[in-house]
């Protein structure tokens, strides 16, 4: 296990932020901590990257204890935090060279490494410009590039795409996928289910400082059970009548989309039965769709709170 924690606890005043977190991350995998704001994701990353000490429990990264052997841990990891940690008044290249020199690569090797990374992250032309002129997506790419200067064995990505537009997010995902191919272990935190689904080999859902579920994206979806039947209605009155007629099946209403969601076994017979029940009440229906549960459904079911 390249990351191993047992009973990790962190308390700020009267507020227990982490309440016994056990993690086992294998070398080379992408591991996601999924949870809402305040679940304890960032605190976990801060402990694992030696920025803060735990109040209880143990954590080992790359074979070293994060408290007693912080220097060895730091030599093996890199951190890309929630806010792009780049010097706005330095150029992209200067930022990279600075990190290279702090990793003790030597002047010439640091310069070479900077040029390699600029190329890899599509920042060659931007490299000579100050970061103040960069877009949000370019800053994040530079931030990620800075994390790779020392070729770390473990990379922590704390909400790597929060606040990015969809196009930049996709670029960032591609960059992360590329890293994985190189065999780097990645621990990422996210509140986007789509992100965890797309990038992670294994997911741990955290809420209120505890792990509430863990597994692959598929196994988590399976925990919520079969298919979902979604009915859309032409108006709010029809939605309300349908909810009344189907009350026995505990539907979940989404009034702003005029939709009703039902657990279903996905069979044609079940769809027939549902539609017949509505026809007998003369409720007009606009659309019927059926889908496998998304991580959104998992998230809602596990944390009993709408997902971000």
């Amino acid at each position: 296990m390249i990351i191993e924690t047992r009973g990790l606890r962190k308390v700020y005043g009267a507020n227990t932020v982490l309440d016994g977190i056990d993690l086992d991350v294998r070398e080379g995998e992408v591991f996601a901590l999924l949870g809402p704001n305040g679940a304890g994701k960032t605190t976990t990353v801060r402990i694992l990257s030696t920025l803060t000490g735990p109040d209880g429990g143990t954590a080992r990264v790359a074979g070293h204890d994060v408290v007693r052997e912080a220097a060895q841990v730091r030599a093996a990891i890199s951190l890309t935090g929630q806010y792009a940690a780049v010097d706005a008044e330095q150029t992209g290249r200067e930022n990279l060279v600075m990190v290279g020199r702090l990793m003790h690569l030597g002047r010439r090797a640091a310069a070479r490494r900077a040029d390699d990374l600029l190329e890899r992250f599509d920042l060659v032309e931007a490299g000579a410009r100050r970061v103040t002129t960069y877009s949000g997506g370019m800053r994040r790419r530079l931030d990620l590039a800075m994390s790779l200067v020392g070729a770390p064995r473990v990379i922590f990505l704390d909400e790597p795409t929060t606040g990015l537009d969809p196009a930049s997010r996709t670029t960032m995902w591609d960059a992360i996928t590329e890293l994985v191919r190189g065999g780097t272990t990645i621990l990422l935190t996210t509140q986007y289910l789509e992100e965890a689904d797309r990038l992670a080999d294994r997911i741990v859902v955290v809420d209120g400082g505890r792990i509430v579920a863990s597994g692959t994206a598929d196994s988590l979806k399976a925990q919520v059970g079969g298919e979902r039947l979604v009915l859309r209605f032409p108006d709010a009155a029809a939605l309300a009548r349908a909810a009344g007629l189907l009350a026995a099946r505990v539907p979940v209403a989404v009034p702003e989309r005029l939709e009703l969601g039902l657990a279903s076994d996905g069979s044609a017979a079940d769809v027939h039965r549902t539609l017949d029940a509505l026809r007998s009440g003369a409720v007009p229906i606009a659309r019927v769709t059926s889908h496998r549960p998304t991580l959104d459904d998992v998230f809602m079911a596990l944390t009993a709170r709408p997902a971000a």
Binding site: H104, L105, R113, E119, R120, L123, E125, A126, L148, G150
Partner: peptide, 24 residues
Amino acid sequence: MTTAVTAPAPVRPAPAGRHGGLAN
């Protein structure tokens, strides 16, 4: 500005850095 997208160059392996010590 637009950046020309070129085929990714083979990335040289990162050199190993040394840590610790007064010189560092």
